[in-house]
């Protein structure tokens, strides 16, 4: 299914531990190059869903396909490598290694993904281009990440997610640490650059005001059911 970069089918996941609840995702997919906003309140299982997609957690039942590969067929280390190759991840904040330079941070995923490194070509030049496209001044390249503003850090995180053109970008509330003005500007460059790199974007947020910029808006409760074990 090359047209679908992400496909979840009949997924069940039960959290181990005391607060036992099950997350069920019967059917959810993202097409190649599509930008999807996944809206959900906190506690709706968004983070769990992202962990399942990124392969740091494994579904108890059902299939998770990323770029056509069933994650359950890979070993733990294999899933880590696969994530490095196929998925660019952007967090809410604290995306960067504070002691590393901007260049170190952008090039970090390539260290774990040889194919993605090949795709990136001259990695440093590509990183410089990405920074320019994201509106980051070039002299930031060799500064340590902790000296950057939050807005700059989030842009560096986008550059890091996009380098080497992974087919899927996963963003977990990347705008929540930004003020309203920066949010709009940030989303503009994020979506523009995702499109420019032919990647699909799955962005999780609780803020419906962001909806207009995306190809598709999905509500968490429409695709997933949460069953809390009545203790």
């Amino acid at each position: 299914m090359p047209d679908r970069v992400l496909h979840l089918r009949g997924v069940h996941f039960q959290w181990p531990g005391r607060a036992a609840f099950t997350l069920a995702v019967p059917n959810f997919s993202v097409a190649s190059g599509e930008t999807v906003l996944l809206l959900g309140e906190s506690g709706s299982g968004k983070s769990t869903l992202l962990s399942l997609i990124c392969g740091t957690m494994l579904a108890d039942d059902g299939k998770v396909f990323v770029a056509g590969t069933d994650l359950a067929t890979l070993s733990g280390g294999g899933r880590d490598r696969f994530r490095a190759e196929q998925i660019g991840v952007i967090f809410q904040q604290f995306n960067l290694l504070p002691f590393g330079t901007v260049a170190d941070n952008i090039l970090l995923p390539l260290r774990f993904a040889p194919k993605r490194r090949l795709r990136a070509g001259d990695a440093r030049a590509t990183a410089v281009d990405l920074c320019a496209a994201l509106g980051l001044p070039q002299d930031l390249f060799t500064t340590r990440a902790h000296t950057l503003s939050v807005g700059q850090q989030q842009r560096v995180a986008v550059a890091r997610a996009l380098i080497g053109q992974p087919p899927l970008i996963v963003a977990d509330e990347p705008t929540s640490a930004l003020d309203a003005n920066s949010q709009a500007a940030f989303l503009d460059v994020l979506i523009a650059q995702t499109r420019a790199n032919n990647a699909a974007l799955l962005m999780v947020s609780h803020d419906p005001r962001l909806s207009a910029r995306f190809d598709r808006v999905v509500h968490m409760e429409d695709i997933a059911q949460i069953e809390r074990a009545a203790a």
């Binding site: 490598r81 490095a84 190759e85 604290f94 960067l96 290694l97 970090l108 995923p109 774990f112 993904a113």
Partner: peptide, 16 residues
């Protein structure tokens, strides 16, 4: 912990 999570998100395995 945050630093380790970043490494993990970038594709580093727990062994790394």
């Amino acid at each position: 912990r945050r630093e380790m999570a970043i490494f993990r998100a970038m594709g580093a395995s727990p062994v790394t």
